[in-house]
């Protein structure tokens, strides 16, 4: 097996052994879906949401967006920063395999985890809870791919500068929670004050969440949402590449 293959297998084991990560990845979205589905009528068409159910319009996109955000902004950067802090990256620098291989392996593991979350939400949502399937699957896929790219690029930037695993977790949370609020995740963006409605489609969390809402209901993602996701991806990647410290 190649070094990347071996390393990915190893990182997968470590991810699964982590006390928080696997429970978070599977538990939070499943719990969100199940708890909200207990509300009477949550999976029924609802005039307030243009004929969609609350589950499909709010809760499923929320479960996906929150988990993408947690994986990309806290779990992934904390792993990488801990590796730097503990000298794992440095030990690799002194071996025939470069520490960038470990970074790749970590990205692969987290992206697979993200994919698992999306599939879980869609499958449980439609098969178990009986909410409607995404009405614009292509648009949904594009939104998820671009949202994942933007959020992981931010995570990479955090991993690049955080000196310790703890610091990475703190910086990640400091980016994650305000972006949830500003993105209209707690209060749907149509109920936000008008100034914040514009912001909700710009920051990566909100842009992803709102694009998921649109496409689940059958609409197209807004250009503003996709455009800002691309801009965030590029800017964060360029900064991360400049700032990343391997030791």
């Amino acid at each position: 097996m190649s070094a990347l293959g071996k390393m990915t297998a190893s990182e997968t084991r470590l991810f699964l052994r982590d006390p928080g990560a696997p429970i978070t990845v599977v538990g939070i979205p499943v719990a969100l879906l199940l708890v909200f589905s207990l509300i009477p009528g949550a999976s029924e068409p609802n005039a307030e949401f243009g004929g969609n159910s609350v589950m499909a319009n709010l809760i499923a996109p929320l479960a996906v967006a929150i988990l993408l955000g947690m994986l990309a902004l806290t779990i992934f950067p904390a792993f990488m920063a801990t590796y730097r802090e503990k000298g794992v990256l440095r030990r690799l620098s002194a071996s025939p395999v470069s520490p960038s291989t470990l970074l790749m392996a970590q990205l692969i593991v987290n992206l697979v985890a993200a994919l698992v979350v999306v599939l879980l939400v869609v499958v449980i949502g439609t098969a178990v809870i009986g909410m409607e399937a995404p009405a614009n699957p292509l648009g949904l896929t594009v939104s998820i791919v671009l949202g994942t790219a933007a959020l992981f690029a931010m995570g990479l930037l955090i991993a690049a500068v955080a000196p310790t695993g703890r610091a990475a977790g703190a910086i990640g949370s400091a980016a994650f929670f305000p972006m949830l609020a500003l993105g209209g995740v707690w209060v749907p963006k149509e109920h936000l004050p008008s100034f914040f409605q514009g912001v909700a489609d710009v920051l990566p969390m909100g842009a992803t969440y709102n694009a998921l809402r649109e496409t689940w209901a059958g609409g197209d993602p807004q250009l503003l949402q996709l455009g800002s996701l691309v801009v965030f991806t590029v800017v964060c990647l360029v900064l991360a590449a400049r700032l990343f410290r391997w030791q």
Binding site: Y83, G87, A94, S95, P96
Partner: peptide, 16 residues
């Protein structure tokens, strides 16, 4: 890298 073994001062492995 293939022919020189290195033990660094202060370098750990992942906990688990």
């Amino acid at each position: 890298r293939q022919r020189l073994g290195v033990q660094l001062q202060e370098s750990e492995l992942p906990e688990r």
